[in-house]
Design a protein around this nucleic acid. Structure first.
Length: 139
DNA sequence: CATCTGATTGTTCTT
DNA sequence: AAGAACAATCAGATG
């Protein structure tokens, strides 16, 4: 039963109840290299949480179970605990921006065909020059 | 074979 | 400003 929302799956955030993740119609990535959105602090935490969860529950492989457990714990965590994850999330933006620039660069460079751009006000991610500083901070 | 689904929250994007 | 869409995940399920 995949197609039916039998019950109102009201979880907590009743915003994307209907959308719930992806939009109908989208099948594959139409762009060759579209940078996926950077994982949020929650996802970063999830990556670690999943590992532990798998060890604690090797039998359970349900993504939903882990998701619920992670969410429950996530809320249980204080900002202090989330700090390391959030910190990572912060750096994710930088990397994402860089990736985005590269992505735009390629698009603007290679596949440039009758694409006419109306104006450059909203989609200009590649505005500031990309400073090439690679900082690999290791605590 | 390819895509979708479940379930969490957060971020980013679009309008 | 507010809502919509999508990010990982993993194995099953469906067209």
């Amino acid at each position: 039963m995949k197609g039916g929302e039998s019950k109102a799956e009201a979880t907590s955030t009743d915003s994307r109840l209907k959308t719930r993740g992806r939009k109908p119609g989208k099948k594959t990535k139409k762009d060759p290299n579209q940078p996926k959105r950077p994982p949020s602090a929650f996802f970063v935490f999830l990556e670690d949480f999943r590992k532990e969860f798998n060890l604690a529950n090797p039998n359970n492989k349900s993504v939903a179970t882990v998701g619920k457990a992670a969410g429950a714990k996530w809320k249980s965590m204080t900002e202090d605990d989330k700090a390391p994850y959030v910190a990572k999330a912060e750096s994710r933006k930088t990397e994402y921006l860089k990736t985005m620039q590269q992505y735009n660069m390629k698009l603007a460079s290679g596949t440039n065909r009758g694409e006419e751009d109306d104006s450059d006000k909203s989609k200009s991610e590649v505005d500031e020059a990309v400073s090439d500083e690679e900082e690999e901070g290791d605590d």
